[in-house]
Nucleic acid binder design. Structure first.
Lengths: 219, 219
DNA sequence: CAATTTAATTAGATTATTCAAACTTTAGGT
DNA sequence: ACCTAAAGTTTGAATAATCTAATTAAATTG
């Protein structure tokens, strides 16, 4: 069974492995805020336990077992975040810290019960998918708001970044998942977008913000 | 801030320190299932951090800070057990294991919220008192069922032991906290007691069981 | 009180996780 | 092809938590 540290490495690996499936030692070190030698030695341990493939001077790759176990940690994290928001009344900006700790609890019944109480949710409070009990993750392809054109109407479905500062920014403008936004105009100069929603007839969002907002186009 | 290991030592110390307030190294080792040398070295660390008083070859004593911090860990444990039973539908026999892990989470808001959701309970699912936010514990003096006399009517208020085997035993006889029991007779030979309650007109409880049942005499 | 049993301590190691410093490889340029 | 800069590795060490074996102090008991 994975230690807390190992679970954190698996999670980081999973989150860093996009397209190419490969992760550099330095990327991992940066993500986990530890030195490269630390990662180097831990990576050897993770390989010994069958979670990843590693060759000297090469980036590392998770094995199928590694991917599954990583997804199961992410499952615990996201179920916890959803539980904290839906069943315990926390704001979406304050759940990450708590979930970072709760995700390391080894008690399947605990998470099963959360899942059941919430009616088996498929996304967490930030719109990220919750892997299933087998560690399978159903990927959904959203569009970034920064790729939308004037006139389009979209629904805010997920965020690519959920730092509490960003969440506070959204809270301050009453922006939450599920909200319908209409793109009023897009500024060619700085790529900022003016949207209208609820009782906000004109809100300007910078490119930096728009990039992080994932939306679904309304038919 | 206490590590998980340190929190476990504090908790064990608190639970072992009755009457005399003193705890032997060997008792601690037995309780925590580690060797005496391990306890010996950890005790030095705990002293260095101000949680206890230690002198070579003497039993150890918690400092006021140690007592408070121990009580705060026990608070997290008991609030969690109560939450699991009352808000998540677990049986009282299955919550200890989970609470042993959840108690180490460092997130005051998480436990405050549990507390609030349950209406600030003062006892856990086994009748043990929940220390307050300052680590103060209000002790209640119950009577053991083994000290009751024939004819007395009492209410089952708490348990001195909550091993899952014992809890299963009680479940099997529909015995739970709050149940009113009438002592029908007491066998002088083996100290066993015959009680009646709910739809159980005659249930014989051994001395071993009676000792662990704490009751309140009905006026 | 001396002998023995029990409790506690010290010494020396081990495993997990981490680091800084020094060294080596790989990857880009020129 | 050669040279540097970046990335990665090795070495050696530190800390936390644990152990076994050996030793010593304290308690018990005839």
């Amino acid at each position: 069974m994975a230690s807390q540290t190992e679970e954190n490495y698996l999670k980081a690996l999973f989150n860093l492995a996009n397209e190419k499936d490969e992760v550099n030692i330095s990327e991992l070190a940066a993500q986990l805020q530890v030195s490269m030698p630390t990662v180097n030695s831990m990576v050897k341990t993770l390989q010994k336990n069958g979670w990843l493939i590693y060759e000297k001077y090469k980036p590392v790759t998770l094995t199928p077992t590694g991917k599954r176990d990583a997804a199961l940690v992410i499952r615990k994290h996201r179920l916890t975040e959803m539980f904290l928001v839906n069943k315990m009344g926390f704001g979406w900006e304050e759940v990450h810290e708590i979930a970072e700790q709760v995700e390391h609890i080894h008690a399947p019944k605990f998470f099963e019960r959360m899942d059941e109480m919430m009616g088996f949710p498929t996304i967490d409070p930030h719109g990220s998918p919750i892997p299933d009990k087998q560690g399978r993750i159903q990927e959904v392809n959203y569009l970034s708001l920064s790729d939308c054109k004037a006139g389009q109407t979209v629904i805010l479905a997920a965020l690519t970044n959920s730092s509490s500062e960003f969440l506070e920014f959204l809270n301050g403008r009453n922006l939450g998942l599920g909200i319908e936004l209409t793109v009023k105009s897009k500024e060619a100069y700085d790529q900022s977008i003016v949207v209208s929603y609820l009782n906000h007839p004109r809100e300007t969002l910078s490119e930096k913000v728009c990039e992080k907002l994932l939306v679904k186009v309304v038919e």
